[in-house]
Design a protein around this nucleic acid. Structure first.
Lengths: 120, 120
DNA sequence: GTCTTGTATGAGTATCTGCTCACATATTGC
DNA sequence: GCAATATGTGAGCAGATACTCATACAAGAC
């Protein structure tokens, strides 16, 4: 068991492991991107929106009625999901129809759901 | 295109879609559980911890050195991950070794990473 | 043009969250 | 017993966040 000292003065018990993990670590950009993606799924309202859109496109006020939260709140969340390129919209008159932009969204929810259900 | 009115007075443009989505919606408990899982992945520090543990178990101070954040901060995050049953530990003297408790953790990170890399 | 409908958006706010700091606990060696 | 090491934990705080409210914008009906 080799005990070492980092250049910054941190205590390290297993220098080998730390060096190894540092090599395999994801880049700062990837970590940032990943956590952004997961954060998007981490809010109940956004999760319900994304799950609702997996079957068919919906407009803001329908989503609002479905989730029983204000249209403004829905619109704010949709904007966030739009900038994250998870949803896109199409206009028909004054109505905007939102849809999922990425198949991975559904896959990620399904996988997490599997994880959750196997826990029990 | 049927326009309806919810019992709570919400505007609904496509009653059909809302009723349909309501049938397919996840339960409140499932939504809550899912968002908790995603929230756990939604923080850069926790994400880096989980990714570091995918290869081999590590102790608190090594993780602290790897991430360059305080041991206290690491310990707090590990507690959260422990209560979420994502990691477990094993004691060897005064040292606690943490490991992933669930294969899904790795799978979820990989899938999200795939999503992220295909975006470009 | 005006009015209505559907949505977007900025500001404000209460809550949540991830850290630091100080201290507590657990185990080993003496 | 006591000291040292490794980790855990509660309080407190700065920043993030998810909502509300008021208002602005876009498209259609007239």
């Amino acid at each position: 068991m080799e005990t070492g000292q980092d250049s910054c003065g941190c205590r390290i018990i297993h220098l080998e492991k730390v060096v190894d993990a540092r090599l395999k670590a994801l880049s700062a950009a990837e970590i940032e991107g990943l956590s952004q993606v997961f954060k998007a799924f981490g809010d109940p309202s956004r999760l319900r929106i994304l799950h609702a859109l997996r079957e068919e496109e919906m407009c803001v006020c329908d989503i609002s009625a479905l989730l029983e939260i204000s249209e403004s709140a829905v619109s704010h969340q949709l904007r966030l999901l739009r900038t994250m390129r998870m949803v896109a919209n199409r206009r028909e008159g004054t109505v905007l129809y939102y849809r999922l932009l990425d198949q991975h969204v559904t896959e990620l929810i399904d996988l997490a759901l599997l994880h959750l259900r196997e826990e029990k």
